[in-house]
Computed example of a mutant assay.
Amino acid sequence: MERLIERSLFASRWMMAPMYLGLAGALAILVWVFLVELWKFLLIVPVMTVNDAILGVLALIDLSLAANLLMIVIFSGYENFVSRMDLDKERDRPEWQGEVDFSGLKLKLIASIVAISGIHLLKVFMDVAKYTPDHIRWMVVIHMVFVVSGVLLAAMDWIASNAKGRKKKPYPAD
């Protein structure tokens, strides 16, 4: 009975596979939005101001970072929680694929979120007249929450990895 339960629980990991396929679909949506933004950006090139150029590029970078974040979640999540991808013979396989554990995934996620939040904040600062001081304040607070969360996650992972590395030494005899 125990073996049946354990095998069933282990097999349940495959219920995550449709979620990763759904995220791949979300990646396709991000590609579409990126192409639409790029098209809009290209259409205003003849009359573009410096601010328009910077804001347009930031929007494209923002979408690119979100897509990168999605790829990290798809690859790392699938390999950590569902099954290893047998792609060792693939020349284009990213070096980090198969080597990012859950701890590394958390840090990559929070770093990406901080970068995306920073870009949103930079967009606000580039067009500050459009926003109320209260809105700007909240954007800064939210960004700082992401930054502090990232630092705390990194510190917790560092503490945990150092704690695992140390072996408890017996107290010296008196």
Rank of each mutant, 00 (worst) to 15 (best):
L55K: 08
I61L: 15
P94S: 09
A129G: 10
S64Y: 10
D174V: 13
E79T: 06
N51Q: 11
F146S: 11
E95V: 07
S8P: 00
K123A: 10
A129M: 13
K40V: 14
R91K: 14
M1V: 03
N51W: 06
V145D: 06
G77W: 03
L9M: 14
V31C: 06
D92P: 00
M144W: 08
V57R: 04
L65Q: 07
W158I: 12
L35M: 09
H143V: 00
L35P: 00
V124F: 10
I44A: 02
L42Q: 14
V140W: 02
A11M: 10
M85C: 10
A173N: 13
I5Y: 05
F41Y: 15
K89S: 13
A163F: 10
L42I: 14
M15V: 07
S149Y: 02
I110S: 05
Q97L: 14
I72V: 15
I61N: 02
A111S: 15
V145N: 09
W32G: 05
N68E: 13
K164F: 04
F146T: 11
W14I: 02
F102Y: 09
L87G: 02
V145Y: 07
L58P: 01
L87M: 11
L153H: 07
K123C: 07
I142L: 09
F75G: 01
D52V: 06
F81I: 05
I5A: 06
D92E: 12
R7V: 01
D88S: 08
M1W: 01
E2T: 08
L27M: 13
V128R: 12
A53K: 08
S12I: 00
V147G: 04
N51F: 06
D88H: 05
I119D: 01
I54F: 03
S103I: 05
N68L: 12
K108V: 00
S103R: 10
K167V: 13
D134S: 15
V128T: 09
K89H: 14
D86H: 08
D174R: 07
L109V: 10
I72E: 02
L60T: 02
A115G: 09
R13F: 11
I5G: 00
F10E: 10
M126V: 01
I110N: 03
Y131N: 08
V73A: 05
N68P: 02
D174E: 13
F102I: 09
K108T: 00
M15S: 12
V147L: 15
D88Q: 08
Y78C: 01
K123M: 15
L60I: 03
V124E: 07
W96H: 05
R84P: 07
R84D: 14
S76Q: 01
A66T: 11
